[in-house]
Amino acid sequence: MTDKNNIIVYCEYEDGKVADVSLELLTKGRQLADRLGIKLEAVVAGAGLKNVEKQILPFGVDTVYKVDDDRLSPYTSLPHSSILINLFKEIQPRIAFMGATSVGRDLGPRVSSALHSGLTADCTALEIGDYTDVKNGTEYKDLLYQIRPAFGGNIVATIVNPECRPQMATVREGVMKKEVRDSNYTGEVVDLDVNKYTRPEDFVVEIIDRHVEKSKVNLKGSPIVVAGGYGVGSKEYFDFLYKLADTLGGEVGASRAAVDAGWADHDRQIGQTGVTVRPKLYIACGISGQIQHIAGMQDSSIIISVNSDPNAPINSIADYVITGKVEDVLPKLIKYYKKNSK
């Protein structure tokens, strides 16, 4: 293990585009690479990758590894895992990131198992710092702090991998910011031979049908989010949220508790294990404010909390606190908006 080695990001690629979550991870990777004085690398596997580096290099990437083969798209577990496992054995990255998407969460564990390296899922922050093993006093410099809410969002844990490399983490889309380093940044492009990095038997899982559905819910892009928690009380009362969102031109979100209760669909879940949003206005209705929820909305510009509990934890990060029942307050907000807007 030598800690001169680099940071690598697995870039998801489909329909000619590198996924936003991968570009966000490159941005974070660049910051950490600067902090550690090492290089940032990227690996992308798929079909039709001709000019893919043009999308990747501007994020400050020093080396792009490309594996271009028709069989690599759409994604399946085994060939993509083999590519990462074999490449990582060769270049021995110090840190590896992937998106906490259905691809990254399928791929990451397989790679970490094969390399016997730790993996932390759904991190909400990544930092560099030191660690002392309390059992034997061993000191480790400049480890990756993998920070995530844990245990249903009741606590925040900082995880480290002192001995194993790479230190691996997945992060959800929208958690990190995406920022081009330099549109003229130059890096090396390395084409890898698919046959050297995969085995024929890796291509056993066959996709026989694929039906892409555009999500009907656009939480991430909505300037106004009206979100409901367990305190809303019932599925019927969620209608008040839809009416308010409709009136204001916003989208409805939900806490995990409300989703678990069946009051809202999964694609509306906001928080560490759902979507991260940064709207202009966030109206939290009957949401107590567990850490895992707050992780997904704390960067909202203005937060209004509507809660019958005057001491709900979410009130501490709110700009406006309305103490009252959701079914009571929301109709009034609708009424006065209609009255006062043109």
Partner: peptide, 29 residues
């Protein structure tokens, strides 16, 4: 287990100065 828990925290949020709005017609309007 390659991963070790370095620390566990109950997060304390830096409290904003929230404005309390009464659940009354005047204040909501």
């Amino acid at each position: 287990s390659p991963t070790k828990v370095k620390s566990i925290e109950n997060v304390v949020f830096t409290a904003k100065d929230a404005r309390r709005i009464e659940n009354s017609d005047e204040e909501l309007e």
